[in-house]
Simulated scan of single mutants.
Amino acid sequence: MISRFLVGVLTLLLLGACREAPRETPAHVAETPQRQLAPAQAEANSAPAVATRAQQRLRTVARSGNIDHDVASLLLEHYRGTQELAAVELTTGRDLELRALADTLRREWQQESQTLGRLLARTHDTASEESTLLYQEFFHGVQAAYDSVTRYASPPTGDPDADFAAALSAHLRTGLLLVQEGIAHGSDPPLIALAHRFHHDQLHHLRQVQAWMSTHPNPTKR
């Protein structure tokens, strides 16, 4: 009886010690400012920020002096920006219609980027007075396309779907202007064929996103 009593007393003492032991928070978790970094990270990866970086990269595409080569470079970079915008919507967006559009854009990037890569690799420089003058005309049109983005840009709202739609609309408009310059001044038949397909597809997507925007009033900035 005594031994059982002692065992019971010791058990109660041990349980009490376990209840009273303080819970320690790991230092690296307590000191990590995750809540402070999250808004900045979200802003940097938002559709408006991604679209801005895509436009900046378009402006830095190297000029070769060959229209066909540069058209392929510009369209490849444009597709890359479209892919990044689609990835933002697929990660953060909630609207099923826009997510379906983003998935379509992602698949188009996978197909057309390979074709553009091959066209880019086989185009080469030409040097003549006529081609130089034509290139200057082409490049002037490209600069106008770059500058057009300021007319189409919308301030961010904080809503992932609305921001994606607005950023994609401006991005597609710029791409249409770029490809029109390529069609008007390019000479490589496979590239021109791709440019016409690009124009058709991007115009279709622009109409899709504009139709969505017309039925979804732009929310106020959060």
Rank of each mutant, 00 (worst) to 15 (best):
M1Y: 11
I2G: 01
I2Q: 05
R4F: 09
F5N: 13
F5P: 02
F5D: 10
G8N: 11
G8M: 08
L13I: 08
L13Q: 07
L13Y: 09
C18W: 14
A21F: 12
P22C: 12
P26M: 13
A30H: 07
Q34W: 12
R35I: 12
R35V: 10
Q36D: 00
Q36G: 10
P39K: 14
A40Y: 04
Q41W: 15
E43V: 10
S46A: 15
A47C: 06
P48V: 08
P48Q: 14
P48K: 08
A49I: 13
V50Q: 10
R53V: 04
R53I: 10
Q55A: 04
R59N: 06
V61W: 05
R63M: 01
N66H: 10
H69R: 05
H69V: 01
L76D: 00
L76P: 00
H78P: 00
Y79G: 09
E84W: 08
L85A: 02
L85V: 13
E89V: 13
E89A: 15
T91N: 03
T92Q: 11
G93K: 04
D95I: 11
L96F: 07
R99T: 00
A102C: 09
E108V: 05
W109E: 13
S113F: 01
T115G: 04
L116Q: 05
L119V: 13
L120Q: 00
H124L: 03
T126L: 14
E137Q: 15
F138Q: 06
Y146P: 11
R151I: 06
P155E: 14
P156Q: 01
P156I: 03
P160V: 01
D161I: 04
A162W: 00
A166G: 08
T174A: 12
T174H: 05
G182Y: 02
I183N: 05
I183T: 01
G186D: 03
D188Y: 12
D188K: 02
P189A: 01
P189F: 04
P189W: 07
R197Q: 15
F198S: 12
Q202E: 15
Q202D: 09
L203H: 13
H205R: 14
R207L: 13
S214F: 02
T215Q: 14
